[in-house]
Design a binder for these strands. Structure first.
Lengths: 288, 288
DNA sequence: CGCTCCCTTGACGACTTTCAATGATCGTGG
DNA sequence: CCACGATCATTGAAAGTCGTCAAGGGAGCG
Protein backbone atom coordinates (compact mmCIF):
# COMPACT_ATOMS: atom_id res chain seq x y z
CA UNK A 1 0.00 0.00 0.00
CA UNK A 2 1.11 3.54 -0.52
CA UNK A 3 -0.88 5.55 1.96
CA UNK A 4 0.20 9.14 2.34
CA UNK A 5 2.01 10.19 5.45
CA UNK A 6 0.31 11.61 8.48
CA UNK A 7 -2.94 9.78 7.95
CA UNK A 8 -3.33 9.09 11.62
CA UNK A 9 -3.41 12.65 12.90
CA UNK A 10 -5.93 12.52 15.71
CA UNK A 11 -7.72 15.83 15.16
CA UNK A 12 -10.57 16.50 12.81
CA UNK A 13 -11.25 12.90 11.99
CA UNK A 14 -14.88 13.42 11.05
CA UNK A 15 -14.48 15.57 7.98
CA UNK A 16 -11.35 13.83 6.79
CA UNK A 17 -11.08 12.44 3.34
CA UNK A 18 -11.20 8.72 3.74
CA UNK A 19 -8.62 6.45 2.26
CA UNK A 20 -9.15 5.01 -1.21
CA UNK A 21 -9.42 1.47 -0.02
CA UNK A 22 -12.21 2.40 2.38
CA UNK A 23 -14.18 4.31 -0.19
CA UNK A 24 -13.81 1.45 -2.59
CA UNK A 25 -15.84 -0.92 -0.49
CA UNK A 26 -18.99 1.10 -0.87
CA UNK A 27 -19.24 0.94 -4.64
CA UNK A 28 -20.61 -2.12 -6.31
CA UNK A 29 -18.73 -3.57 -9.21
CA UNK A 30 -20.04 -2.27 -12.51
CA UNK A 31 -23.49 -1.79 -11.09
CA UNK A 32 -24.48 1.53 -12.58
CA UNK A 33 -27.87 1.44 -10.95
CA UNK A 34 -26.47 2.00 -7.47
CA UNK A 35 -23.34 3.91 -8.45
CA UNK A 36 -23.27 7.31 -6.82
CA UNK A 37 -21.76 8.76 -9.98
CA UNK A 38 -24.43 7.50 -12.36
CA UNK A 39 -25.66 11.03 -13.04
CA UNK A 40 -22.15 12.12 -14.06
CA UNK A 41 -21.58 9.07 -16.21
CA UNK A 42 -22.62 7.84 -19.61
CA UNK A 43 -25.73 5.88 -18.61
CA UNK A 44 -27.12 8.88 -16.75
CA UNK A 45 -30.34 8.94 -18.73
CA UNK A 46 -30.72 5.21 -19.19
CA UNK A 47 -33.41 3.31 -17.33
CA UNK A 48 -35.06 -0.05 -17.21
CA UNK A 49 -34.10 -2.50 -19.88
CA UNK A 50 -31.61 -0.21 -21.62
CA UNK A 51 -29.74 0.37 -18.39
CA UNK A 52 -29.67 -3.33 -17.76
CA UNK A 53 -28.22 -3.95 -21.21
CA UNK A 54 -25.54 -1.34 -20.66
CA UNK A 55 -24.62 -2.71 -17.26
CA UNK A 56 -24.30 -6.13 -18.74
CA UNK A 57 -21.62 -4.83 -21.09
CA UNK A 58 -19.82 -3.05 -18.31
CA UNK A 59 -20.08 -5.01 -15.15
CA UNK A 60 -17.14 -7.34 -15.67
CA UNK A 61 -15.02 -4.39 -16.75
CA UNK A 62 -15.07 -2.63 -13.42
CA UNK A 63 -11.96 -3.28 -11.43
CA UNK A 64 -9.36 -1.95 -9.04
CA UNK A 65 -6.03 -0.59 -10.21
CA UNK A 66 -3.13 -0.16 -7.85
CA UNK A 67 -1.25 3.09 -7.40
CA UNK A 68 1.42 3.94 -9.91
CA UNK A 69 0.00 1.93 -12.79
CA UNK A 70 -0.24 3.14 -16.35
CA UNK A 71 -3.84 3.02 -17.50
CA UNK A 72 -3.16 3.92 -21.11
CA UNK A 73 -0.12 5.04 -23.03
CA UNK A 74 0.06 8.02 -25.31
CA UNK A 75 -0.23 6.60 -28.81
CA UNK A 76 -2.11 3.45 -27.82
CA UNK A 77 -5.02 2.53 -30.01
CA UNK A 78 -8.37 3.30 -28.45
CA UNK A 79 -10.95 0.66 -27.92
CA UNK A 80 -12.54 1.97 -24.78
CA UNK A 81 -12.81 4.88 -22.41
CA UNK A 82 -12.92 4.74 -18.62
CA UNK A 83 -14.99 5.97 -15.72
CA UNK A 84 -13.05 6.76 -12.56
CA UNK A 85 -14.98 5.71 -9.46
CA UNK A 86 -12.37 5.79 -6.75
CA UNK A 87 -8.87 7.21 -6.53
CA UNK A 88 -7.17 9.67 -8.83
CA UNK A 89 -5.25 9.84 -12.08
CA UNK A 90 -2.83 12.13 -13.78
CA UNK A 91 -2.79 12.79 -17.51
CA UNK A 92 0.58 13.57 -18.98
CA UNK A 93 2.60 13.52 -22.15
CA UNK A 94 6.21 12.76 -22.79
CA UNK A 95 8.06 15.80 -23.96
CA UNK A 96 10.87 15.73 -26.51
CA UNK A 97 13.53 16.03 -23.83
CA UNK A 98 12.37 12.84 -22.15
CA UNK A 99 10.57 14.51 -19.31
CA UNK A 100 6.89 14.46 -18.57
CA UNK A 101 4.43 17.28 -18.65
CA UNK A 102 1.44 16.76 -16.40
CA UNK A 103 -1.64 18.11 -18.11
CA UNK A 104 -4.52 17.21 -15.82
CA UNK A 105 -5.55 15.49 -12.64
CA UNK A 106 -8.71 13.42 -12.53
CA UNK A 107 -10.89 12.56 -9.57
CA UNK A 108 -13.83 10.23 -8.94
CA UNK A 109 -16.91 10.80 -11.01
CA UNK A 110 -14.91 11.61 -14.12
CA UNK A 111 -14.79 10.02 -17.54
CA UNK A 112 -11.31 9.38 -18.91
CA UNK A 113 -10.90 9.67 -22.66
CA UNK A 114 -13.37 12.37 -23.62
CA UNK A 115 -10.89 13.81 -26.09
CA UNK A 116 -10.59 10.44 -27.75
CA UNK A 117 -13.90 9.22 -29.16
CA UNK A 118 -13.66 9.08 -32.93
CA UNK A 119 -9.95 9.72 -32.74
CA UNK A 120 -7.61 6.85 -33.41
CA UNK A 121 -5.22 6.89 -30.52
CA UNK A 122 -4.74 8.22 -27.04
CA UNK A 123 -3.26 11.69 -27.09
CA UNK A 124 -2.00 11.50 -23.54
CA UNK A 125 -0.95 8.87 -21.04
CA UNK A 126 -2.88 8.22 -17.85
CA UNK A 127 -1.49 6.78 -14.64
CA UNK A 128 -3.04 6.18 -11.23
CA UNK A 129 -1.82 8.35 -8.39
CA UNK A 130 -3.22 6.07 -5.71
CA UNK A 131 -5.15 2.83 -5.48
CA UNK A 132 -8.15 3.40 -7.71
CA UNK A 133 -11.21 1.78 -9.17
CA UNK A 134 -12.13 2.13 -12.81
CA UNK A 135 -14.89 1.02 -15.13
CA UNK A 136 -13.87 0.25 -18.66
CA UNK A 137 -16.42 1.33 -21.23
CA UNK A 138 -15.81 -0.21 -24.65
CA UNK A 139 -16.40 2.21 -27.48
CA UNK A 140 -18.81 -0.37 -28.85
CA UNK A 141 -21.00 0.24 -25.81
CA UNK A 142 -21.45 3.89 -26.73
CA UNK A 143 -24.60 3.69 -28.76
CA UNK A 144 -26.45 6.62 -30.20
CA UNK A 145 -28.73 6.62 -27.20
CA UNK A 146 -25.73 7.72 -25.16
CA UNK A 147 -24.52 10.42 -27.50
CA UNK A 148 -26.48 13.18 -25.87
CA UNK A 149 -24.94 12.49 -22.47
CA UNK A 150 -21.51 12.07 -24.02
CA UNK A 151 -21.81 15.51 -25.56
CA UNK A 152 -22.81 16.94 -22.25
CA UNK A 153 -19.86 15.36 -20.49
CA UNK A 154 -17.49 16.62 -23.15
CA UNK A 155 -18.76 20.15 -22.83
CA UNK A 156 -18.24 20.00 -19.09
CA UNK A 157 -14.75 18.69 -19.69
CA UNK A 158 -14.02 21.50 -22.10
CA UNK A 159 -15.16 24.06 -19.60
CA UNK A 160 -12.89 22.57 -17.01
CA UNK A 161 -10.01 22.95 -19.41
CA UNK A 162 -10.87 26.61 -19.82
CA UNK A 163 -10.70 27.00 -16.06
CA UNK A 164 -7.27 25.41 -16.15
CA UNK A 165 -6.25 27.86 -18.84
CA UNK A 166 -7.22 30.72 -16.56
CA UNK A 167 -5.15 29.27 -13.77
CA UNK A 168 -2.11 28.89 -15.97
CA UNK A 169 -2.40 32.37 -17.44
CA UNK A 170 -2.26 33.95 -14.00
CA UNK A 171 0.84 36.04 -13.68
CA UNK A 172 2.34 35.22 -10.32
CA UNK A 173 3.29 31.84 -9.01
CA UNK A 174 1.38 32.53 -5.83
CA UNK A 175 -1.85 33.02 -7.72
CA UNK A 176 -1.35 29.90 -9.75
CA UNK A 177 -0.82 27.85 -6.63
CA UNK A 178 -3.77 29.42 -4.84
CA UNK A 179 -5.99 28.88 -7.85
CA UNK A 180 -4.94 25.25 -7.94
CA UNK A 181 -5.69 24.77 -4.26
CA UNK A 182 -9.11 26.34 -4.65
CA UNK A 183 -9.84 24.10 -7.59
CA UNK A 184 -8.89 21.06 -5.54
CA UNK A 185 -10.98 22.32 -2.68
CA UNK A 186 -14.02 22.65 -4.93
CA UNK A 187 -13.51 19.17 -6.32
CA UNK A 188 -13.24 17.59 -2.90
CA UNK A 189 -16.29 19.48 -1.74
CA UNK A 190 -18.29 18.26 -4.72
CA UNK A 191 -17.30 14.73 -3.72
CA UNK A 192 -18.70 15.21 -0.25
CA UNK A 193 -15.29 15.53 1.34
CA UNK A 194 -13.81 18.33 3.35
CA UNK A 195 -13.10 21.41 1.24
CA UNK A 196 -10.51 22.65 3.71
CA UNK A 197 -8.55 19.54 4.54
CA UNK A 198 -6.81 18.53 1.33
CA UNK A 199 -4.86 15.36 0.96
CA UNK A 200 -2.94 15.68 -2.28
CA UNK A 201 -2.65 12.36 -4.09
CA UNK A 202 -0.01 13.74 -6.47
CA UNK A 203 3.56 14.80 -5.78
CA UNK A 204 4.66 18.41 -5.71
CA UNK A 205 6.66 17.71 -8.82
CA UNK A 206 3.45 16.75 -10.57
CA UNK A 207 1.73 19.89 -9.38
CA UNK A 208 4.65 22.07 -10.41
CA UNK A 209 4.76 20.47 -13.85
CA UNK A 210 1.04 21.03 -14.19
CA UNK A 211 1.33 24.68 -13.21
CA UNK A 212 4.36 25.35 -15.35
CA UNK A 213 6.70 26.21 -12.51
CA UNK A 214 9.57 24.60 -10.66
CA UNK A 215 8.84 22.45 -7.68
CA UNK A 216 11.16 24.54 -5.55
CA UNK A 217 9.04 27.59 -6.27
CA UNK A 218 5.92 25.66 -5.41
CA UNK A 219 7.39 24.58 -2.12
CA UNK A 220 8.46 28.14 -1.29
CA UNK A 221 5.08 29.52 -2.23
CA UNK A 222 3.29 27.08 0.04
CA UNK A 223 5.73 27.86 2.82
CA UNK A 224 4.95 31.53 2.46
CA UNK A 225 1.21 30.94 2.46
CA UNK A 226 1.69 29.02 5.67
CA UNK A 227 3.68 31.87 7.16
CA UNK A 228 0.74 34.14 6.34
CA UNK A 229 -1.50 31.73 8.30
CA UNK A 230 -3.64 31.09 5.24
CA UNK A 231 -3.00 27.39 5.48
CA UNK A 232 -1.06 24.72 7.34
CA UNK A 233 0.70 21.92 5.60
CA UNK A 234 2.39 18.76 6.63
CA UNK A 235 3.81 16.95 3.67
CA UNK A 236 1.01 16.41 1.22
CA UNK A 237 -1.71 17.20 3.72
CA UNK A 238 -2.81 20.77 3.40
CA UNK A 239 -5.31 22.36 5.73
CA UNK A 240 -6.86 25.56 4.47
CA UNK A 241 -7.34 27.98 7.36
CA UNK A 242 -8.49 31.07 5.50
CA UNK A 243 -10.42 30.19 2.39
CA UNK A 244 -11.75 33.72 1.84
CA UNK A 245 -8.21 34.99 2.20
CA UNK A 246 -7.01 32.65 -0.52
CA UNK A 247 -9.87 33.71 -2.77
CA UNK A 248 -8.85 37.31 -2.23
CA UNK A 249 -5.26 36.49 -3.09
CA UNK A 250 -6.35 34.92 -6.35
CA UNK A 251 -8.72 37.58 -7.60
CA UNK A 252 -7.14 40.71 -6.21
CA UNK A 253 -5.41 42.95 -8.76
CA UNK A 254 -4.94 40.33 -11.43
CA UNK A 255 -2.60 41.40 -14.18
CA UNK A 256 -3.54 43.07 -17.39
CA UNK A 257 -5.90 41.84 -20.01
CA UNK A 258 -6.59 42.88 -23.50
CA UNK A 259 -8.64 45.62 -25.04
CA UNK A 260 -8.96 45.24 -28.77
CA UNK A 261 -9.01 46.92 -32.10
CA UNK A 262 -11.97 49.20 -32.01
CA UNK A 263 -14.40 49.68 -34.80
CA UNK A 264 -16.79 52.36 -33.61
CA UNK A 265 -20.45 51.76 -34.11
CA UNK A 266 -22.16 53.92 -36.68
CA UNK A 267 -19.71 53.23 -39.48
CA UNK A 268 -21.31 53.07 -42.93
CA UNK A 269 -22.28 49.46 -42.76
CA UNK A 270 -22.05 48.16 -46.27
CA UNK A 271 -21.99 44.52 -45.34
CA UNK A 272 -24.93 44.49 -43.05
CA UNK A 273 -27.45 45.90 -45.46
CA UNK A 274 -27.68 42.66 -47.28
CA UNK A 275 -29.15 40.69 -44.44
CA UNK A 276 -31.82 41.35 -41.92
CA UNK A 277 -31.20 39.03 -39.03
CA UNK A 278 -29.72 39.98 -35.70
CA UNK A 279 -29.59 43.69 -36.35
CA UNK A 280 -27.89 44.63 -33.10
CA UNK A 281 -24.49 43.20 -32.45
CA UNK A 282 -22.80 45.26 -29.79
CA UNK A 283 -19.47 46.77 -30.64
CA UNK A 284 -16.67 45.57 -28.44
CA UNK A 285 -14.96 48.38 -26.59
CA UNK A 286 -12.30 48.35 -23.94
CA UNK A 287 -13.55 48.12 -20.40
CA UNK A 288 -11.77 51.10 -18.90
CA UNK B 1 -12.33 48.93 -42.43
CA UNK B 2 -9.50 48.16 -40.09
CA UNK B 3 -6.89 46.60 -42.26
CA UNK B 4 -3.53 46.10 -40.61
CA UNK B 5 -0.60 48.23 -41.64
CA UNK B 6 1.95 47.23 -44.21
CA UNK B 7 -0.43 45.27 -46.37
CA UNK B 8 1.07 46.62 -49.54
CA UNK B 9 4.58 45.34 -49.19
CA UNK B 10 5.56 44.51 -52.75
CA UNK B 11 7.49 41.30 -52.21
CA UNK B 12 6.06 37.83 -51.85
CA UNK B 13 2.61 38.71 -53.06
CA UNK B 14 1.74 35.23 -54.24
CA UNK B 15 1.73 33.37 -50.96
CA UNK B 16 0.28 36.28 -49.00
CA UNK B 17 -2.75 35.86 -46.87
CA UNK B 18 -5.51 37.59 -48.72
CA UNK B 19 -7.74 40.12 -47.07
CA UNK B 20 -10.95 38.95 -45.42
CA UNK B 21 -13.17 40.80 -47.83
CA UNK B 22 -11.58 39.09 -50.80
CA UNK B 23 -11.83 35.64 -49.34
CA UNK B 24 -15.42 36.30 -48.48
CA UNK B 25 -16.50 36.54 -52.08
CA UNK B 26 -15.62 32.97 -52.78
CA UNK B 27 -17.92 31.37 -50.24
CA UNK B 28 -21.58 31.03 -50.99
CA UNK B 29 -24.06 32.07 -48.40
CA UNK B 30 -25.13 29.15 -46.25
CA UNK B 31 -24.54 26.74 -49.06
CA UNK B 32 -22.89 23.86 -47.24
CA UNK B 33 -22.64 21.83 -50.41
CA UNK B 34 -19.95 24.02 -51.89
CA UNK B 35 -18.41 25.29 -48.65
CA UNK B 36 -14.73 24.42 -48.48
CA UNK B 37 -15.13 23.77 -44.75
CA UNK B 38 -17.96 21.27 -45.04
CA UNK B 39 -15.74 18.42 -43.87
CA UNK B 40 -14.82 20.35 -40.72
CA UNK B 41 -18.40 21.37 -40.02
CA UNK B 42 -21.51 19.77 -38.64
CA UNK B 43 -23.07 18.56 -41.89
CA UNK B 44 -19.85 16.80 -42.86
CA UNK B 45 -21.50 13.43 -43.25
CA UNK B 46 -24.81 14.62 -44.56
CA UNK B 47 -25.77 14.06 -48.17
CA UNK B 48 -28.68 14.33 -50.50
CA UNK B 49 -32.02 15.15 -48.96
CA UNK B 50 -30.72 15.45 -45.41
CA UNK B 51 -28.07 17.91 -46.46
CA UNK B 52 -30.68 19.91 -48.33
CA UNK B 53 -32.87 20.02 -45.24
CA UNK B 54 -29.98 21.19 -43.10
CA UNK B 55 -28.98 23.87 -45.55
CA UNK B 56 -32.53 25.11 -45.64
CA UNK B 57 -32.34 25.76 -41.92
CA UNK B 58 -28.99 27.48 -42.21
CA UNK B 59 -28.85 29.38 -45.41
CA UNK B 60 -30.46 32.61 -44.26
CA UNK B 61 -28.32 32.54 -41.14
CA UNK B 62 -25.01 32.97 -42.88
CA UNK B 63 -23.83 36.54 -42.85
CA UNK B 64 -20.91 38.93 -42.56
CA UNK B 65 -19.92 40.52 -39.28
CA UNK B 66 -17.71 43.56 -39.16
CA UNK B 67 -14.52 43.77 -37.16
CA UNK B 68 -14.80 44.55 -33.49
CA UNK B 69 -18.31 43.21 -33.00
CA UNK B 70 -19.41 41.11 -30.08
CA UNK B 71 -20.79 37.83 -31.36
CA UNK B 72 -22.03 36.56 -28.01
CA UNK B 73 -21.68 37.77 -24.45
CA UNK B 74 -20.56 35.64 -21.54
CA UNK B 75 -23.77 34.73 -19.71
CA UNK B 76 -26.05 35.04 -22.72
CA UNK B 77 -28.57 32.29 -23.15
CA UNK B 78 -27.66 29.85 -25.89
CA UNK B 79 -29.93 29.18 -28.79
CA UNK B 80 -27.35 28.54 -31.44
CA UNK B 81 -23.72 27.89 -32.18
CA UNK B 82 -21.70 29.33 -35.05
CA UNK B 83 -19.41 28.24 -37.84
CA UNK B 84 -16.63 30.66 -38.71
CA UNK B 85 -16.05 30.77 -42.46
CA UNK B 86 -13.96 33.89 -42.91
CA UNK B 87 -12.07 36.13 -40.52
CA UNK B 88 -11.12 35.49 -36.93
CA UNK B 89 -12.50 35.69 -33.41
CA UNK B 90 -11.20 35.92 -29.92
CA UNK B 91 -12.79 34.22 -26.94
CA UNK B 92 -12.42 36.00 -23.65
CA UNK B 93 -13.91 36.39 -20.22
CA UNK B 94 -14.25 39.40 -17.99
CA UNK B 95 -12.15 39.04 -14.90
CA UNK B 96 -13.18 40.33 -11.47
CA UNK B 97 -10.93 43.37 -11.78
CA UNK B 98 -12.73 44.53 -14.89
CA UNK B 99 -10.07 43.44 -17.33
CA UNK B 100 -10.35 40.81 -19.99
CA UNK B 101 -8.58 37.53 -20.25
CA UNK B 102 -8.25 36.23 -23.77
CA UNK B 103 -8.68 32.48 -23.76
CA UNK B 104 -8.60 31.48 -27.41
CA UNK B 105 -8.35 32.66 -30.97
CA UNK B 106 -10.49 31.13 -33.67
CA UNK B 107 -9.88 30.90 -37.39
CA UNK B 108 -11.91 29.85 -40.42
CA UNK B 109 -13.20 26.31 -40.45
CA UNK B 110 -13.97 26.35 -36.75
CA UNK B 111 -17.18 25.84 -34.84
CA UNK B 112 -17.85 28.39 -32.11
CA UNK B 113 -19.70 27.15 -29.05
CA UNK B 114 -18.53 23.58 -28.71
CA UNK B 115 -18.35 23.96 -24.95
CA UNK B 116 -21.94 25.09 -24.89
CA UNK B 117 -24.31 22.45 -26.23
CA UNK B 118 -26.55 21.26 -23.43
CA UNK B 119 -25.27 24.02 -21.19
CA UNK B 120 -27.53 26.94 -20.49
CA UNK B 121 -25.41 29.96 -21.20
CA UNK B 122 -22.25 31.05 -22.92
CA UNK B 123 -19.25 30.63 -20.69
CA UNK B 124 -17.15 33.11 -22.63
CA UNK B 125 -17.63 36.11 -24.85
CA UNK B 126 -16.68 36.09 -28.51
CA UNK B 127 -15.75 39.10 -30.62
CA UNK B 128 -14.54 39.45 -34.18
CA UNK B 129 -10.96 40.55 -34.71
CA UNK B 130 -11.52 41.50 -38.34
CA UNK B 131 -14.32 41.50 -40.84
CA UNK B 132 -15.67 37.98 -40.75
CA UNK B 133 -18.35 35.69 -42.09
CA UNK B 134 -20.31 33.40 -39.82
CA UNK B 135 -23.04 30.79 -40.15
CA UNK B 136 -25.49 30.61 -37.30
CA UNK B 137 -26.53 27.06 -36.48
CA UNK B 138 -29.62 26.96 -34.25
CA UNK B 139 -29.42 24.27 -31.60
CA UNK B 140 -32.70 23.00 -32.97
CA UNK B 141 -30.87 22.14 -36.19
CA UNK B 142 -28.55 19.76 -34.36
CA UNK B 143 -30.44 16.54 -34.74
CA UNK B 144 -29.24 13.15 -33.60
CA UNK B 145 -27.94 12.49 -37.08
CA UNK B 146 -25.35 15.19 -36.42
CA UNK B 147 -24.31 14.02 -32.98
CA UNK B 148 -21.52 11.84 -34.21
CA UNK B 149 -19.85 14.68 -36.06
CA UNK B 150 -20.46 17.02 -33.16
CA UNK B 151 -18.64 14.62 -30.87
CA UNK B 152 -15.77 14.45 -33.30
CA UNK B 153 -15.51 18.22 -33.50
CA UNK B 154 -15.60 18.52 -29.74
CA UNK B 155 -12.82 16.01 -29.31
CA UNK B 156 -10.70 17.95 -31.78
CA UNK B 157 -11.47 21.12 -29.87
CA UNK B 158 -10.48 19.47 -26.61
CA UNK B 159 -7.19 18.38 -28.07
CA UNK B 160 -6.49 21.87 -29.23
CA UNK B 161 -7.05 23.09 -25.70
CA UNK B 162 -4.51 20.58 -24.47
CA UNK B 163 -2.02 21.99 -26.93
CA UNK B 164 -2.73 25.43 -25.54
CA UNK B 165 -2.13 24.07 -22.05
CA UNK B 166 1.29 22.89 -23.14
CA UNK B 167 2.10 26.30 -24.53
CA UNK B 168 1.08 28.04 -21.36
CA UNK B 169 2.96 25.64 -19.12
CA UNK B 170 6.22 26.40 -20.88
CA UNK B 171 8.62 28.08 -18.52
CA UNK B 172 10.11 30.96 -20.38
CA UNK B 173 8.34 33.77 -22.14
CA UNK B 174 10.39 33.14 -25.24
CA UNK B 175 9.16 29.61 -25.53
CA UNK B 176 5.57 30.65 -25.01
CA UNK B 177 5.82 33.21 -27.77
CA UNK B 178 7.57 30.81 -30.12
CA UNK B 179 5.02 28.11 -29.41
CA UNK B 180 2.25 30.56 -30.18
CA UNK B 181 3.84 31.58 -33.46
CA UNK B 182 4.30 27.98 -34.50
CA UNK B 183 0.67 27.28 -33.67
CA UNK B 184 -0.42 30.21 -35.81
CA UNK B 185 1.87 29.06 -38.57
CA UNK B 186 0.31 25.60 -38.55
CA UNK B 187 -3.20 27.05 -38.62
CA UNK B 188 -2.44 29.30 -41.57
CA UNK B 189 -0.81 26.45 -43.38
CA UNK B 190 -3.85 24.24 -42.86
CA UNK B 191 -5.91 27.02 -44.39
CA UNK B 192 -3.80 27.01 -47.49
CA UNK B 193 -2.02 30.22 -46.59
CA UNK B 194 1.63 30.91 -46.10
CA UNK B 195 3.01 29.29 -42.95
CA UNK B 196 5.87 31.75 -42.80
CA UNK B 197 4.21 35.06 -43.50
CA UNK B 198 1.87 35.66 -40.58
CA UNK B 199 -0.54 38.52 -40.46
CA UNK B 200 -1.79 38.68 -36.88
CA UNK B 201 -5.43 39.72 -36.72
CA UNK B 202 -5.24 40.30 -32.96
CA UNK B 203 -3.38 42.96 -31.02
CA UNK B 204 -0.24 42.25 -29.04
CA UNK B 205 -2.24 42.95 -25.93
CA UNK B 206 -4.57 40.13 -26.85
CA UNK B 207 -1.68 37.77 -27.46
CA UNK B 208 -0.01 38.74 -24.21
CA UNK B 209 -3.23 38.23 -22.29
CA UNK B 210 -3.63 34.85 -23.93
CA UNK B 211 -0.10 33.81 -23.05
CA UNK B 212 -0.27 35.12 -19.51
CA UNK B 213 2.45 37.70 -19.92
CA UNK B 214 2.72 41.46 -20.27
CA UNK B 215 2.59 43.01 -23.68
CA UNK B 216 5.89 44.76 -23.07
CA UNK B 217 7.55 41.40 -22.54
CA UNK B 218 5.94 40.09 -25.69
CA UNK B 219 7.22 43.05 -27.66
CA UNK B 220 10.72 42.63 -26.25
CA UNK B 221 10.71 38.90 -26.94
CA UNK B 222 9.74 39.43 -30.56
CA UNK B 223 12.39 42.12 -30.87
CA UNK B 224 14.99 39.69 -29.61
CA UNK B 225 13.86 36.93 -31.97
CA UNK B 226 14.25 39.44 -34.76
CA UNK B 227 17.74 40.31 -33.59
CA UNK B 228 18.57 36.61 -33.77
CA UNK B 229 17.37 36.64 -37.40
CA UNK B 230 14.73 34.03 -36.66
CA UNK B 231 12.01 36.32 -37.94
CA UNK B 232 11.29 39.80 -39.23
CA UNK B 233 8.36 41.80 -38.08
CA UNK B 234 6.74 45.00 -39.08
CA UNK B 235 3.83 45.82 -36.86
CA UNK B 236 1.52 42.87 -36.90
CA UNK B 237 3.09 41.29 -39.94
CA UNK B 238 5.57 38.66 -38.92
CA UNK B 239 7.72 36.83 -41.39
CA UNK B 240 9.31 33.67 -40.11
CA UNK B 241 12.81 33.29 -41.51
CA UNK B 242 14.00 30.23 -39.62
CA UNK B 243 11.17 27.89 -38.81
CA UNK B 244 13.44 25.01 -37.78
CA UNK B 245 15.29 27.41 -35.54
CA UNK B 246 12.07 28.39 -33.80
CA UNK B 247 11.13 24.75 -33.38
CA UNK B 248 14.49 24.14 -31.77
CA UNK B 249 13.98 27.08 -29.45
CA UNK B 250 10.67 25.66 -28.33
CA UNK B 251 11.63 22.04 -27.74
CA UNK B 252 15.22 22.41 -26.62
CA UNK B 253 15.84 21.78 -22.93
CA UNK B 254 12.30 22.32 -21.76
CA UNK B 255 11.99 22.62 -18.05
CA UNK B 256 11.36 19.85 -15.64
CA UNK B 257 8.47 17.46 -15.57
CA UNK B 258 7.21 15.06 -13.03
CA UNK B 259 8.24 11.65 -11.94
CA UNK B 260 5.78 10.10 -9.57
CA UNK B 261 5.24 7.95 -6.53
CA UNK B 262 6.53 4.57 -7.46
CA UNK B 263 4.87 1.32 -6.64
CA UNK B 264 7.21 -1.37 -7.81
CA UNK B 265 5.77 -4.22 -9.80
CA UNK B 266 5.76 -7.55 -8.09
CA UNK B 267 4.08 -6.40 -4.92
CA UNK B 268 1.61 -8.87 -3.45
CA UNK B 269 -1.35 -7.92 -5.56
CA UNK B 270 -4.38 -8.52 -3.43
CA UNK B 271 -6.76 -6.46 -5.52
CA UNK B 272 -6.02 -7.91 -8.87
CA UNK B 273 -6.74 -11.51 -8.08
CA UNK B 274 -10.44 -10.94 -8.22
CA UNK B 275 -10.62 -10.07 -11.91
CA UNK B 276 -9.10 -11.52 -14.98
CA UNK B 277 -9.12 -8.76 -17.56
CA UNK B 278 -6.15 -6.71 -18.68
CA UNK B 279 -3.57 -8.55 -16.64
CA UNK B 280 -0.62 -6.42 -17.64
CA UNK B 281 -0.79 -2.77 -16.73
CA UNK B 282 2.67 -1.31 -16.87
CA UNK B 283 3.98 0.34 -13.76
CA UNK B 284 4.78 3.97 -14.21
CA UNK B 285 8.37 4.80 -13.49
CA UNK B 286 10.37 7.97 -13.90
CA UNK B 287 11.91 8.51 -17.27
CA UNK B 288 15.52 9.02 -16.27
C1' DC C 1 -5.33 67.80 -37.71
C1' DG C 2 -5.87 65.93 -33.32
C1' DC C 3 -7.45 62.14 -30.77
C1' DT C 4 -7.12 57.50 -29.19
C1' DC C 5 -5.26 53.25 -29.10
C1' DC C 6 -1.41 50.39 -29.92
C1' DC C 7 3.48 49.34 -30.12
C1' DT C 8 8.21 50.09 -28.60
C1' DT C 9 12.08 50.96 -25.56
C1' DG C 10 14.61 52.06 -21.13
C1' DA C 11 15.56 51.53 -16.22
C1' DC C 12 14.56 49.55 -11.98
C1' DG C 13 12.82 46.26 -8.75
C1' DA C 14 10.57 41.96 -7.65
C1' DC C 15 10.06 37.51 -8.52
C1' DT C 16 11.55 32.78 -10.40
C1' DT C 17 14.66 29.85 -11.81
C1' DT C 18 18.94 27.64 -11.12
C1' DC C 19 22.37 25.18 -8.61
C1' DA C 20 23.48 23.00 -4.49
C1' DA C 21 22.86 20.71 -0.27
C1' DT C 22 20.19 18.88 3.43
C1' DG C 23 15.92 16.50 5.49
C1' DA C 24 12.09 13.66 5.37
C1' DT C 25 9.52 9.66 3.98
C1' DC C 26 8.63 5.14 2.24
C1' DG C 27 9.64 0.55 0.67
C1' DT C 28 13.09 -2.90 0.65
C1' DG C 29 16.06 -6.11 2.31
C1' DG C 30 18.89 -7.69 5.86
C1' DC D 1 12.83 -4.66 13.68
C1' DC D 2 16.10 -1.68 11.95
C1' DA D 3 19.03 0.26 8.43
C1' DC D 4 19.65 1.44 3.72
C1' DG D 5 18.48 3.49 -0.80
C1' DA D 6 15.51 5.99 -3.75
C1' DT D 7 12.35 9.48 -4.29
C1' DC D 8 10.37 13.52 -2.80
C1' DA D 9 10.38 17.84 -0.11
C1' DT D 10 12.73 21.83 1.74
C1' DT D 11 15.91 25.69 2.14
C1' DG D 12 19.81 29.00 0.84
C1' DA D 13 22.30 32.01 -2.23
C1' DA D 14 23.23 33.80 -6.83
C1' DA D 15 21.82 34.81 -11.40
C1' DG D 16 18.53 35.56 -14.73
C1' DT D 17 13.94 36.79 -16.24
C1' DC D 18 9.88 39.24 -16.10
C1' DG D 19 6.77 42.76 -14.40
C1' DT D 20 6.35 47.58 -13.41
C1' DC D 21 6.57 52.41 -14.28
C1' DA D 22 7.51 55.87 -17.53
C1' DA D 23 7.98 58.05 -21.86
C1' DG D 24 7.99 58.37 -26.85
C1' DG D 25 6.46 57.15 -31.56
C1' DG D 26 3.19 55.56 -35.05
C1' DA D 27 -1.15 54.34 -37.32
C1' DG D 28 -6.03 54.94 -38.07
C1' DC D 29 -10.27 57.46 -37.53
C1' DG D 30 -13.21 61.30 -36.96
Amino acid sequence: MSMPPGTNTPSDSSARNTAPADRMQTSGRGNCRVCIFKSRCLPAELEGERLRAFEQQIWRQSRPVKAGQMLVHQGDMIDSIYALRVGSLKAFIDEPDGNERVMAFRFPGTIIGLAEPYQKQWGRSFATLEDSWLCRIPLSAITEALHRQLIHLMSVCLRREYEAHLTLALSSGTRKVVSFLLELSAIFKSLGQSPTHLRLPMTYLDVASYLGMRHESLSRTLAQLQKQTLLRKKGKEIHIDDLPGLLRLKTEDVIGAAPMAVVPAGTPDSYRGSIDTDPSLATHRRSK
